[in-house]
Structures are given as structure tokens and as C-alpha cells.
């Protein structure tokens, strides 16, 4: 079975800082993977490398078995890699539905007239799937935070991506909103969507994910079954132990 997405020995340096230092990992189809690590451990850089917003200093990125290390972010999107960002990134001045249309309109399949119609249908389906169809004509800024996040996820899944990367989707949310997003992700997992969930809170991902990667100081500390991995002393120390001074 080929991995949907694979990183091989990725290194990213910003100036003299090693943000990511030799990470290799593979994402298997149909799984909800979680990438956890303390703040500053390099999680977002890993996601940005996958979605090609950051070019690694060293190493390779494979999407569906093809080397995409030199591809642009728009190219990997068109090849089925969708993502959300840590902060809400909905476009002001567009309605909820128009925001979701942005998720399908740039795909190669949306070029023809029939393709555009199918894309619009896919956007409407995604709105229903994320249960935001009743606010389709509303300006997103007027909506609660959790609903805005669901609109973003609708936009990301509308184009039926092969893999969905979620960069801390519940950061700054209330307990109720976290519950809401957790349920959404669970449904997507049950539908067979391949996902990578980035999170700094180990507890949030434990009941949700089926494969766990732990990142610390830009390196993979551990990987495997969530419960077993989380119980490892090294992982416990990284999350609960005394503060490390970054090298």
C-alpha cells in the first residue's frame, strides 16, 4: 500500500534556526493521523512543507508516490492536498457559499461548463456535510468561531482531496466548540478521509486519531498507536516535564 503523503528526511532551516531536523513520516490512506508536539516544536513548518508553502533545505516530499518537492502550493492542491490554517482564513467580502466555491473553482476538473456545475454541486454538498448550508448566504465574520471553522473545513473537503491537513483546528476554542470540531473530524474519519491533524494538546487527539506522531525540537520523538505512544516516558516528559531550552 503506497502512502498518500510521505516525507523523507525533511530538514528546514530559517536562517540559523533548525525548525525541522530530519523528519520522515508516511500517511496511510483512510487514517486520521495526529501530529502533536509542544509549541515551537516545528509542527506548522512540517505542514507548510507538505503543502509546499515552505521549501525544505533538504529532503523530499511525495504525494501519491510522486516527488512534489519542487512543486508549488497550487500544484499540490490541484493534485489533492488540501489544508486549513491555524487562524481562520475566510475571505471577507464573500459569502459562506462563495468561500466554499473557492475550494473547487481552481481544480483542473472545473474548467469546462459541466465541470463548473459539478464543482458548484460539490460545494453545496460540502456545505451540507459540514452542516453550514443554512448560513450559505451569510458573511462569515458574522458567525461564531466554531461555525467559521466548519466553513473552512467544508472548503477544504469540497474538492474531494486525497489528503486533508488541519493545522491546530481547535486552537483558542471553547470546550463546546472543540467538541463540535472533534465530532466533525470523527465523521470525516468514518467517511474514509485521510487526514493529518496538528495539535499541541495531546489529550484532544487521543480519542480521535488512529496514528500518532510526536514532534519535539524539530525531530520525531515517537510514532505509532496513539495510546501506547502517548504513554512513553519520553513523550510524557516532552509534554509534562520540565521546560527544555531549545538548542
Amino acid at each position: 500500500m503506497t502512502a498518500v503523503l510521505e516525507l523523507r528526511d525533511i530538514k528546514v532551516r530559517f536562517g540559523g534556526v533548525k525548525a525541522v531536523d530530519g523528519v520522515s513520516l508516511a500517511l496511510e490512506p483512510g487514517h486520521l493521523h495526529a501530529l502533536v508536539g509542544p509549541n515551537g516544536s516545528g509542527k506548522t513548518t512540517v505542514v507548510n512543507t507538505m503543502s509546499r508553502l515552505v521549501t525544505p533545505t533538504d529532503g523530499q516530499v511525495f504525494l501519491g508516490g510522486q516527488d512534489v518537492t519542487a512543486a508549488g502550493p497550487h500544484e499540490v492542491y490541484r493534485r489533492g492536498l488540501a489544508r486549513t490554517f491555524q487562524g481562520i482564513r475566510l475571505v471577507e467580502g464573500l459569502t459562506v457559499r462563495e468561500n466554499v466555491l473557492l475550494g473547487v473553482q481552481e481544480l483542473p476538473t472545473a474548467r469546462s461548463r459541466a465541470g463548473r456545475r459539478r464543482a458548484a454541486e460539490a460545494a453545496d454538498e460540502a456545505l451540507e456535510r459540514m452542516d453550514v448550508h443554512h448560513v450559505a448566504q451569510v458573511a462569515p465574520a458574522a458567525l461564531p468561531y466554531g461555525v467559521q471553522r466548519r466553513v473552512e473545513i467544508a472548503r477544504a473537503v469540497a474538492g474531494a482531496p486525497k489528503i486533508l491537513l488541519l493545522d491546530e483546528p481547535v486552537a483558542g476554542m471553547s470546550a463546546g466548540e472543540r467538541q463540535e470540531i472533534s465530532a466533525v473530524l470523527g465523521r470525516l474519519r468514518d467517511d474514509g478521509m485521510t487526514m493529518l491533524l496538528i495539535e499541541h494538546d495531546l489529550r484532544f487527539v487521543l480519542g480521535l486519531s488512529d496514528h500518532l506522531f510526536v514532534l519535539n525540537f524539530g525531530q520525531l520523538l515517537a510514532a505509532g498507536d496513539p495510546a501506547a505512544t502517548a504513554a512513553l516516558p519520553a513523550v510524557q516528559e516532552a509534554f509534562l516535564g520540565r521546560k527544555h531550552v531549545p538548542a
Binding site: L53, H74, Y77, R83, F85, G93, L94
Partner: peptide, 16 residues
């Protein structure tokens, strides 16, 4: 609109 509001998002949504 997407291009002038958020370039990084535009590229992550397939816009060259």
C-alpha cells in the same frame, strides 16, 4: 478578491 486579500491562502487553494 482572494488574491488581494490573502496570497498564501490563494496558493493553498490552487491559485498560481
Amino acid at each position: 478578491l482572494l488574491l488581494r486579500k490573502d496570497e498564501a491562502l490563494a496558493s493553498a487553494l490552487g491559485v498560481n
